[in-house]
């Protein structure tokens, strides 16, 4: 038996991106579901154009009206195979990665992605109407959760697992910042009491979309504030979709790569994760909210993308090994010769 199977850089990258795209699919389904619950009579356009804004997709619509037309937007994210931010596109990408990874992932993982992919490719315009939309979003969400469960139960815990987890966690943190951002993209009534009620509804919907509603209720005071919700989503130490916990877990997996799998190149990425974690805890939440929350979230997104970049430079395809020394084989049956990079 070999101590540890080697992992191709390309496959490490494939695992990272497969996990990222699947996490993105789940979060997009959550976002669409929450937008639908924000939708109130006469104000549909606002809700759907908010979704377009947080996905940074405004440019892809010819007119502002198009970006606010519920049906157009729904089709854009649930049916359009050519839109890189749509669910079918992301799932196609995840499956293509899974296809290249078939020697590494379990047969059960591959089979489930394959069946899920077929389901999504067959979504019809009528599936986006009325109460069917919410059911569709739920089914998509649950399919990714099924994937997660199968993966947890069947995937071999070599370095590939660490890269899979990194992709998933970085994407999850990024998506949570977007979910929080959506609240700030929506207009609220000027009247104080109406505004309080509207905001309460919105926060509840955001928490529900993030599957954090009940946990939050157990923690929060009866009269909770925006600060409490933002703080919960950004830096609760135990909430599985909080940005802080995702970053901490990413840090853990990078550390595993260094300690257990002896990959010294993990250091840069670890430093990047440490910096991001400190950034999240640096300022009191109240100060963040009084300032520019959107700008703050943007900054978190940039730091996450830098973390992904550092991981890529250390291990993936764009990582070019430095000067190599190629020691002659000694012929003593010690297995393959490992070439250390300078």
């Amino acid at each position: 038996m070999r101590a540890e199977p080697v992992l191709l850089s390309r496959d490490a990258e494939g695992l990272f991106w497969m996990a990222r795209y699947l996490e993105r699919v789940e979060n997009l389904a959550r976002l669409i579901d929450v937008v639908q619950s924000f939708e109130s009579p006469g104000r549909e356009a606002e809700s759907w154009s908010a979704l377009v804004a947080i996905m940074s997709d405004q440019d892809k619509f010819e007119t502002a009206e198009g970006a606010g037309d519920p049906e157009t937007v729904r089709r854009f994210y649930l049916l359009d195979q050519t839109n890189p931010t749509s669910i079918p596109f992301c799932l196609e990408y995840a499956r293509t990665n899974a296809r290249t990874l078939r020697p590494l992932i379990s047969t059960e993982m591959w089979r489930q992605i394959n069946v899920f992919h077929r389901f999504v490719a067959q979504i019809q315009p009528c599936d986006l109407e009325g109460d069917r939309l919410s059911r569709l979003c739920n089914r998509i969400k649950e399919s990714v959760q099924t994937h997660t469960g199968i993966t947890e139960g069947t995937m071999y815990r070599d370095q590939g697992w660490q890269f899979y987890q990194l992709g998933r966690l970085i994407e999850r943190a990024d998506q949570t910042t977007r979910l929080l951002d959506i609240k700030y993209r929506l207009l609220v009534p000027r009247d104080r009491e109406a505004r309080r009620l509207t905001e309460l509804t919105m926060w509840n919907a955001v928490l529900r979309a993030a599957a954090g509603y009940h946990a939050f209720k157990r923690l929060a005071r009866a009269e909770f504030s925006a600060e409490d919700v933002a703080g919960f989503l950004l830096r609760d130490p135990s909430f599985p979709r909080s940005v802080l916990l995702s970053v901490r877990r990413a840090e853990y997996h990078l550390d595993e790569l260094r300690r257990i799998h002896h990959l010294p190149h993990a250091n840069d990425a670890i430093e990047q994760a440490e910096y991001l974690r400190e950034f999240l805890l640096e300022r009191p939440m109240q100060e963040v909210l009084e300032g520019d929350l959107h700008g703050y979230l943007d900054r978190v997104q940039i730091l996450l993308s830098e973390l992904a970049g550092a991981t890529g430079r250390a291990f993936f395809r764009d990582w070019r090994p430095g000067a190599t020394t190629a020691p002659e084989e000694q012929g003593q049956g010690q297995g393959q010769v490992q070439v250390q990079t300078a």
Partner: peptide, 10 residues
């Protein structure tokens, strides 16, 4: 050699 996460492998 093949490109792996731990460098080039023969």
């Amino acid at each position: 050699f093949m490109r792996t996460t731990s460098g080039l492998r023969r």
